[in-house]
Design a protein around this nucleic acid. Structure first.
Lengths: 131, 131
DNA sequence: ACGCTCTGCTTGACATACTTAACGAGGGCG
DNA sequence: CGCCCTCGTTAAGTATGTCAAGCAGAGCGT
């Protein structure tokens, strides 16, 4: 029995849920229900739900299906999937002058967002602007 | 038993073994034994053997470890793993206008977003902050 | 009130990834 | 010859991904 839920919320760590949050955000803004997406991906709605909440790490097959259904590139999903240091040189915010980025900064500054939500939101934003 | 395959070759999923063969070739090229690689990847030699022969489809974790040990880019491995080219959307680039404010304002002002994307982003944001 | 249909979520069983402990083939050396 | 070592592979077990079915709640009509 899995008594969990609800109380403890400590050991979350990682962007384990960043992937799930990203997927969920993308699904919602595509106006899809879990069952809709389940139909498109041939993955059960139950499992999709668990993936979105970070309870399971989806396999390549599933990840690919999801990316396909959401019309995302697989690399976008993979970079969300705890796919840490890609060989590409990360761009650090050097902040050499006046801030211009706008949306991302506003997200980073909003105290109402959790860390997890921030990551998901920024991911969605970046997927839009192609950064 | 098992001998070398060579007789029937019909129902084998083509790509599956391409990945394994690729990994095995790379491993041998690096003069590593299965046990050596197992030590580097923290994956059992037995399982590595099975992956190389196409009996199992490795997870992201394992794939990453392997790529790391072989000093390959993950994309190289992934493209071997039967990943069709995902339809990547074309992305337009424009110059952002500076300003800083709340998240919704920043979204509204970002010229890189389409009207539709703006609405979607804001709705996701609102679902996060419980508006 | 009811019933219908949608949503997301839980449960319990099954399939597949993965590990540990073997096994047999080959090689070097006494 | 035996002995030891290393190689790849296999067998049997455990962990985890995945599914089908069913449940609770919200909206919406008769």
């Amino acid at each position: 029995m899995n008594a969990e839920n609800g109380s403890s919320r400590g050991a979350w760590s990682l962007q384990v849920n960043a992937l799930g949050g990203f997927i969920r955000a993308q699904r919602q803004l595509a106006r899809l229900s879990l069952r809709d997406m389940a139909a498109m991906t041939s993955v059960s709605n139950a499992y999709l739900s668990q993936v979105e909440r970070g309870l399971h790490q989806p396999s390549l097959k599933v990840l690919h299906s999801i990316a396909d259904a959401l019309q995302l590139s697989t690399e976008q999903l993979l970079s969300q999937a705890g796919w840490g240091p890609a060989p590409t040189e990360p761009v650090v915010h050097a902040d050499p002058g006046p801030v211009e980025a706008g949306v991302e900064d506003a997200i980073a500054r909003d105290p109402r967002l959790s860390a997890e939500q921030r990551v998901a939101l920024v991911s969605v934003y970046r997927s839009f602007v192609g950064d």
